[in-house]
Each structure stands twice: as structure tokens, then as C-alpha cells.
Amino acid sequence: MSNLAFPAESLARTGFAADQPAPALPAERAPLTKKQTAADHPTWCPGCGDFSVLALYYKLIEKRKMEHEKICTVAGIGCSSRFPYFVQAHGAHFIHGRALSFASGISLSRPDLHVFVFGGDGDAFSIGGNHFNHTARKNVKMTYVVMDNFVYGLTKKQTSPTSPIGFKSKTDVWGSMDRPINPLKQALAAGATFVARSTATNIPHLLKMMELAMDHDGFSYIECLSECIEFYPGAFDAANPRKGGAFNEVPAEHDATDEYAAYRLADAAWPGMFGLFYQVQRPTKNTNEAKIVTDLRGKVDGLADWQVLKKSFDRMK
């Protein structure tokens, strides 16, 4: 102890008037209205697809009666990743591509929270591609909505990993030449246990997918087409009946536990299918880790932490 220049202190939390008594938790809680969940006015361009994803998140919070303090909204970097600022809940705006890793740290240490991650295609499949694969593989419990617009918007029109071949951007003035990633196949191959596809223009469908995703015990991923009206206008017209396109839903007879069937659906010709492609129950990282804790805690039953440590130290005498 004499070596400790900084002994343990009971640290007061800060950032509020210390002389105020702690408020009591309200006994009765009405569902949160949009007025209560909306924070900053979004910085997105008028007409951006992301607005409807945000509106549906508010709606989801209200409909599912989530409590303010239990919601954790996490994002990386990009237009869509500004999300946490627009939601009145505990939020974290992390660095580019690493939102899933950050969110895993929350999810694995706090089973009481709903962890939602929002981001774009660059965050998910380019700079954060590695984390997408591994978070899916580990099946960490959280919901991830990728607002895919097939272009880098925040940096003003560079090629994205989902830009189709031939797309003319500032970094591919002759047209993009690299084969785009198929996010659904990527998610399936990585071992995601919930894979769905929707679009920002079909409100009821997207809400339904978000509800299914939220209820899934594991890593739930929604690929959501969300048009960038500034740098890639009309990208998703083919999937929008109001623009003369076709919104093809996953056939009712599709077996969502059949991985190969899900692959075949994911390979459907543009504009592809929408709906739940794949959902299976596999133990989550959260439950696997919790099981180890339960097993090992059982062996030191009734001991205080310092006594557990003493057992280790006694073996090192």
C-alpha cells in the first residue's frame, strides 16, 4: 500500500449540481414520444434516405417502450454515423470503422442495455470490414443497421466498396472497376445469425425488420438501401415502386434457417430481394462468456474478490 501514490478513492461523478438530491426513478413510464427522443436536428441533406431510418428508430423506441437510459446508440464515421447526435439517449460517436468493436465492449459488459449501431457502407465494409466479419462470427448481441448508399457522401463522392462497376466517382472518373461487395453474402459467410435487407423508402417493411432484429438474440444485421440524393441520386429507383421499380419481397416459402437458400436469394439480380434472408439461434458471445463466469464463480463460491486473489497468491509463495 505504501507504494500507492494514488490510493482508491470514492469518486464523485461530476457534470451536475452536486447539491441537488438524486431524483427518483419515475414509477410509471409512458412510452417515449418522438419529441422526447429527438435531439439535434440532423445535418443530412434534404431528401436523404437516412431521415426515414432515424424516424423509424424513434418509432421503434416508442412502440417497444424502451427506456431512455437503457438505449445505447453507437456509430463510427460517415454521414449516417452522425446518428447518435440526433437521438436523445446515451450515445457514442466513435472512430471510423470501429463502431462494432466499441459496441461489443458495451454489449459484453452490460447485458441490461439495448445496443444499436448505425453506419454506412464505408464504415461497415471498407475500413471496418474486419470488424464486421468478426463481430458476426462472435455473434455479439447487438443490432447493426447499415445505411448503404453505394457512395462516400461525407467526403463528397468517392467510390465505396458497394459502388457498382461503372459508377463514376471522383476517384474513379472512368467508372468504378472493382467488384462490389455483396453485403448479404459477406454477412452470411462471416456467420451472422440474423441477416435482413430493406430500404429506407419502404417504411412499414423497414420497421418490421428493425423489430425482428431487435428481438433477435445475437448479432442482427440489416442491410438498408438509403439513397444519397446528392452524390448518387436514383441509385435505388429500381427497388422503389413509386419510381417505376419493383420491391420484391423474399418469397413466403423461403426457409430462413437455410444458409444456402439465403445465399441464392442474396445473389438475385438487381434490385434483389427484401426481407429476412437468414435467422438462426446460435449461442451468443455474451452467453458463452457468461457461462464461463458462472462455472468459475461456482468454484470460488462465497469468497470475496480479495480472497479469490489470495488463493492465487498463495500458490506463488
Binding site: 457514442a92 466513435f94 468493436s101 465492449g105 458495451i106 470488424h131
Partner: peptide, 11 residues
């Protein structure tokens, strides 16, 4: 990133 997420979560 994961460690920071866990720190943010309270510990």
C-alpha cells in the same frame, strides 16, 4: 476499441 466501449459502459 472494445476496451473503450467497456470503459464507457461504466468500468
Amino acid at each position: 476499441s472494445m476496451a473503450l466501449g467497456a470503459s464507457y459502459a461504466g468500468r
